[in-house]
Amino acid sequence: MLYSEKVLDHFSNPRNVGEIEDADGIGEVGNAKCGDIMKMYLKIDKGIISDVKFKTYGCGAAVATSSMATELIKGKPVEDALKLTNQAVVEALDGLPQVKIHCSVLAEQAIKSALSDYYTRQGIDPLPIVGEIKEPEE
C-alpha cells in the first residue's frame, strides 16, 4: 500500500483526536464489520465550527482522512463544511490509493452526519440542507 507522506503524517500524528463533551452535533458512520467507523464531534458557535474532534476505528487511510477532514473544517463556517467533498480530502492528502478512496467518502459522510445531528437538535429538518447520509456498502 503506497501512502503519501501526508497520509502517513496524519496517521501517525492525527489532528483533533478525541471527544467534545458538550458537542452541538455528533455523527457516526461505517460499521465494524467492514472495518471502518468514524465518529465526529462538532462545536458550533454563531455558524462557525469552533471545534471538531474525531475518533476512528480503521486503517491508516481512515485515520488520515478523518484527521484531514477535521483540519479542513475547523474554524470554518458551517456552509463550508457542508460543501466539503471527499475529493478535497483526497487532494489535501496528496492522493490516496484507489482501494482507499472509500475512506475519504466515509470522512465526508461523518461530517455530514454530525451536521445533520446539529440541525436536528435545532429542530430543523436536516435532509434539505445536508442531504442523505450514504452508508458504505457492505
Binding site: F11, S12, G35, G58, C59, G60, A62
Partner: peptide
C-alpha cells in the same frame, strides 16, 4: 484494525502481517 496496527509496528521497526480487509 489490523492495517493501523501494522503501520504503527512499522514505525517502530517491526515488520508484521494482518488478516484485515484493509
Amino acid at each position: 484494525e489490523g492495517e493501523s496496527l501494522l503501520l504503527m509496528l512499522d514505525m517502530n521497526g517491526i515488520c508484521a502481517s494482518s488478516g484485515s480487509a484493509c
